[in-house]
Design a protein around this nucleic acid. Structure first.
Lengths: 261, 261
DNA sequence: CCATCTTTGTGCACGCGTTCACAAAGACAT
DNA sequence: ATGTCTTTGTGAACGCGTGCACAAAGATGG
């Protein structure tokens, strides 16, 4: 997911697999739900079901953290919550800035899941002077001019980009220059960052496109494979597209690629 | 990512790897950008850079679709845009419903990336009667009571869930019962669905937690590994947590797990 | 103290995805 | 037409992640 070069093959001190790290938040959520219900211990089987994964996978994941279970009993919920939180770095406070306070930025600012997990929204930043000073989620929107000051003053190391695609790279560069070393990118662009900076991206339309792919395939199967078979025997590339290459510009600074079937 | 059982090992007619499918939207975006600039052809090297991937990977990905390139020249941009669009199913119209019109739901409704790629927002649905009739992104918010009617009448097969965690499973069940077979879930819950239904989830706080993990590791390395080494020699599990298991309830229907270090 | 039963932790095998490296294919110049 | 040069398409090797299956560990009861 990240754009930064190789994903730290060097100095992997404890060597927790990336796939495992990605699942830890899942386990943590399931565990906190159990903790809320005052459940003292849980077996790998139960917890796996709650987290939506395989129990063997879960046990192997936990084995990378250490031996925190008790054979014949299961895992101590409270203790495991603490261990995973610590491993993920959630026992400390992470100031975060959100850049681009449009619909999405505002939604992110209001999202409870951040504050509740150690992430503190330090500031909301937008380039539009008309937005400056407006209150969103209890915080005043501040102008992009202040970006560097805000990042440095608050020791911000994590930045969230929710700007239009066109502005994302510049914002990214400025964040990195100011000291941010982790970026969560919602803009539909590939960001290039120097080594040592992590980028994760979330693209809403990509997820939908993947769903559409599977949906199309389901429909094709229902039709008895005939359509798919016909498609397979399409003529090979003929330099110029046979069908009309009609395109219309999109409203998000990104260009769509939809052709009438 | 999906919760549904094994990810269709059977009837894989054309057998495009899941990882490749996930990258096709990336290529498509890069290609449409080139198309906008009227670039006629592009080499795998250039396109790979634009999409942020390895050129060998890109070529292998395209090889699953067919031989659409010309050796010594590269790929015809327009033709490739068309082929990928067709493969992803973007040449057809996909009516989509968004359930849960809070901050996030409204942001999604306004997101241009949907409409521009063949996804048509058929309706916005919310459980709050006070919201009913309100205009969001040019569409009236409709009440949950109408969910089944809307889905069936508009032949909706893709649903987006942006409700609080507590309501997600029920909404999901109703969507599925009404005929939806693909779900994009933004609620922080594991959804259980019958076989044949695809679920993809996007969890904003999970992404941040993964970043925090890497960020913490970076900081640890800067401190000369000493801290990390000290952590490694922690006493083993002692039935009861040594440190305080303090917890405070979170505002998002989900419980946080943050302990003061 | 011993037997039984439950559940963890992990060795092992398998499959998918990634990357390398190169032969084949075509463009282009002469 | 022939040779050179560029770029694709892919065989093969490698590494990571997953899941099975089981031995070891501990709880529990007699």
């Amino acid at each position: 997911m990240a754009t930064g070069r190789t994903h730290r093959p060097a100095t992997r001190s404890r060597g927790i697999p990336e796939a495992t790290v990605a699942r830890l938040p899942l386990y943590l959520r399931a565990l906190t739900a159990l903790s809320e219900r005052s459940v003292p211990t849980v077996s790998s089987e139960e917890l796996a079901t709650a987290a939506g994964v395989n129990s063997a996978k879960l046990r192997k994941d936990f084995s990378y953290l250490g031996s925190y279970g008790t054979r014949g009993v299961g895992y101590d919920v409270e203790y495991l919550v603490y261990q995973i939180s610590r491993e993920l770095g959630l026992t400390q406070d992470w100031p975060v800035v959100i850049v681009g306070i449009g619909n999405l930025g505002a939604a992110l600012a209001n999202y409870g899941g951040f504050a509740s997990r150690g992430f503190r929204v330090a500031a909301l930043i937008d380039a539009d002077p008309a937005q400056t000073g407006k209150m969103v989620a209890g915080l005043p929107v501040r102008h992009t001019d202040e970006l560097e000051d805000i990042v440095e003053h608050n020791q911000v190391s994590i930045g969230v980009i929710a700007t239009p695609a066109g502005a994302a790279q510049e914002v990214c560069d400025r964040l990195v220059a100011a000291g941010v070393t982790s970026i969560l990118n919602f803009a539909p662009t590939v960001l290039s960052v120097p080594d040592g900076v992590d980028v994760r991206k979330v693209d809403l339309s990509i997820e939908l496109q993947i769903l559409a792919f599977h949906e199309q395939r389901k429909a094709g199967e229902d039709l008895g494979e005939a359509v798919a078979a016909a498609r397979d025997t399409l003529p090979k590339a003929v330099a110029e597209p046979v069908t009309e290459p009609a395109r219309r510009p999109g409203p998000d600074g990104d260009v769509p690629a939809v052709m009438p079937a």
